[in-house]
Amino acid sequence: MNQFVPSQQSALAMDSAESTAASAALAPDGVAAAAVDSSVDDDVVPEVAGCISSMIDRGGSVESHRLFLAQRTALEMLRDRGYSVPESELARTLPEFRAWWADKPELERLAFSTTLASDLSNKVKVVFCPPEPVKIATIREIYNGTKEENLSRLILILQSKIMSKARESIKEIFAFKVDIFQITELLVNITKHVLKPKHEVLTAEEKTKLLKEYNVVDSQLPRMLETDAVARYYGLGKGTVVKVTYDSELTGNHVTYRCIF
């Protein structure tokens, strides 16, 4: 278990072009090259081939790549939530991660914890679950391994499905909020998508000022579900207000506010 000393990575994931190129990498080099040659004009083959080649992951297993991406996104997510995350953790490359991971590939090594920058007593921990379906026994094992850490929040990253009874048991076993993500949800940091507007979480004071300025109550604001991908990324609870800034040719330039419910 690491607490930002030996450390982890976050996640920035493959876009559609990268994933296509990665699948091409599974075929012999000659086949991949032939596919490129047959789909583009001869004049631009060198440039296109070079671009695609830079996207192909030839250095290791798919599993290690998935874990690297998910871990890096998790670190970025904690940073965006206001937790302390050293830049050195975010800067670790895939080859560096693979060198560290291959030395002793155990999921326990991927677990890490940190505290809120503004409140050191607010501690969060990220745990990667095994590839098998998560059952009540797994949840209890995680609880026994974390109950002495005085956590305020827990993030579980699943590699398989979670049984319904195990999901229900989380609320009974843990006295604090537990966020659950599938590893596939963290292969890409959704907040970095070019079409995603900027989201800023308002403080209690900023929310009060906003409601007073427009003479409304929070229930009158446009709404965002607590299960929304952005709300889950930032770990937002009901009643939280988010400032959403749109700035693109498609949406135009404007600001709106949404309340989580």
Rank of each mutant, 00 (worst) to 15 (best):
Asn144Ser: 13
Asn144Arg: 13
Asn144Met: 06
Asn144Gly: 02
Asn144Ala: 13
Gly145Thr: 13
Thr146Cys: 08
Thr146Ser: 09
Thr146Gln: 09
Lys147Thr: 09
Glu148Ile: 04
Glu149Gln: 14
Glu149His: 10
Asn150Tyr: 10
Asn150Met: 03
Leu151Phe: 05
Leu151Tyr: 13
Leu151His: 03
Leu151Cys: 01
Leu151Gly: 03
Ser152Gln: 10
Leu156Phe: 15
Leu156Cys: 07
Leu156Tyr: 10
Ile157Cys: 03
Leu158Tyr: 09
Leu158Phe: 12
Gln159Ser: 07
Gln159Tyr: 08
Gln159Ala: 01
Ser160Tyr: 11
Lys161Asp: 14
Ile162Val: 12
Ile162Pro: 00
Ile162Ala: 12
Met163Gly: 04
Met163Ile: 13
Lys165Asp: 14
Lys165Gly: 02
Ala166Thr: 14
Ala166Glu: 13
Ala166Arg: 08
Ala166Ile: 10
Glu168Tyr: 12
Glu168Phe: 08
Ser169Asn: 13
Ser169Tyr: 13
Ser169Glu: 15
Ser169Met: 13
Lys171His: 07
Lys171Phe: 09
Glu172Trp: 09
Glu172Pro: 00
Glu172Tyr: 12
Glu172Gly: 03
Ala175Thr: 14
Ala175Met: 02
Ala175Leu: 08
Ala175Val: 05
Lys177Ser: 10
Val178Tyr: 10
Val178Gln: 08
Ile180Gly: 02
Ile180Trp: 11
Ile180Thr: 14
Ile180Ser: 02
Ile180Ala: 04
Phe181Lys: 00
Gln182Ser: 06
Gln182His: 13
Ile183Tyr: 14
Ile183Met: 12
Thr184Met: 00
Thr184Glu: 13
Glu185Trp: 03
Glu185Pro: 00
Leu186Asn: 04
Leu186His: 02
Leu186Ala: 01
Leu186Glu: 05
Leu187Cys: 00
Leu187Ser: 00
Leu187Met: 05
Leu187His: 09
Leu187Val: 06
